Amino acid sequence: MRVNVYVPLALALLLAGVAPPVGRRVSPALAARALTAAAALTAAASTWALLLLSMTLIDQAPAVIAEAGEEGRSLPEPVPETVALLAVAALGVIAHRLLHVVRAHTSTRRMMIRLCEGHPPDSELVVAASPTPHAFAIPGKPGRILVTAAMFGALEPAERRVLLAHERAHLTHRHAALSTTVALAAAANPLLVPVRTTVTFLLERWADEEAASTVGDRRTTARALARAALVSQRARTGCGLHFSEHAVTRRIAALHTAPLPVVRSVGVAVLALGALPALGAVDATGDLLRLLAETLPGL
């Protein structure tokens, strides 16, 4: 347990390092799915590793110390007490960060649903009479696309089709679920923040590629992105525009090149990298169970 319990924490650094190159070289759909799954596994394993470290404090319980003294046994010390105490503190921070992410996502979802109130429940498209250019994909049953009149008015007819195809792709492929998952993973393990950043960008790239495929014109899609970004920048609102944020320049440049290949071997390698921390956590769990058997032989 002295080594394998730290494996999930170390491999989180490796996953964070490979995420950006994978995002630049592999199809956005494949890369986003693989990185999200790997981040979720790594975050769960690293959190479990912290829990295992904190559980080693059981040998400091007065009852355990007294019993060991009566039987003349020496208590094992798999990790220094300071490390175990730091793990307990880290778990508290993680719980706070996770709660913050859940509250933020819940609040945003409620706000967007409220904006759709008063519209027919079976209508996919909701056009809000607002002078601020916005476009959102609102997941749910049914999912909806919220676009402001200012955004629609700023785009040409072909560009409007791009916008709707982009937001529809977010709904069809459940990008909100992937975004929430990777956000929770980064909250549980801050080392995974680069993975969250990469996946957030890849989800927009994925929707861009879907829109380009739907309208059959990559240049029109790139033009729609550029126009939406300019309109949003002029508005200078405090809230980001989902359709035009997330490194628009890189997204536009990508649409002027050929789509990235679907390299499944890279996806498998990323998933394997996510599975390794889980294996390390399982091995460390076995070590802890043996430790507990030695510390509390009556159990």
Rank of each mutant, 00 (worst) to 15 (best):
A158P: 02
E159R: 06
R160H: 14
R160V: 13
V162W: 00
R168T: 03
A169V: 04
H170M: 00
T172E: 15
T172R: 15
H175D: 07
H175M: 00
L178I: 04
T181R: 07
V182R: 01
A183L: 02
L184F: 07
L184A: 10
A185P: 09
A185N: 06
A186N: 07
A187R: 03
A188E: 00
N189C: 11
P190I: 04
V193T: 01
R196M: 02
T200E: 12
L202S: 02
L202K: 03
E204M: 09
E204T: 05
W206K: 01
W206G: 09
A207S: 09
D208P: 05
D208H: 03
A212Y: 07
T214S: 02
V215G: 10
A222C: 05
R223W: 08
A224E: 04
A228C: 03
A229C: 14
V231W: 09
S232K: 10
S232M: 07
A235N: 09
A235G: 05
T237Y: 13
T237V: 08
T237R: 10
G238H: 08
G238L: 10
G240N: 10
G240A: 15
H242M: 08
S244K: 13
S244Q: 11
S244M: 13
E245F: 12
H246K: 09
T249E: 15
A253N: 14
A254N: 07
L255I: 03
L255D: 03
H256I: 06
P259H: 00
P259C: 04
L260M: 05
L260V: 02
P261D: 12
V262P: 04
V262S: 15
V263M: 08
V263H: 13
V263S: 09
S265C: 12
G267F: 03
V270W: 11
V270T: 15
V270I: 15
A272D: 02
L273C: 13
A275W: 11
L276E: 08
L276S: 10
P277W: 08
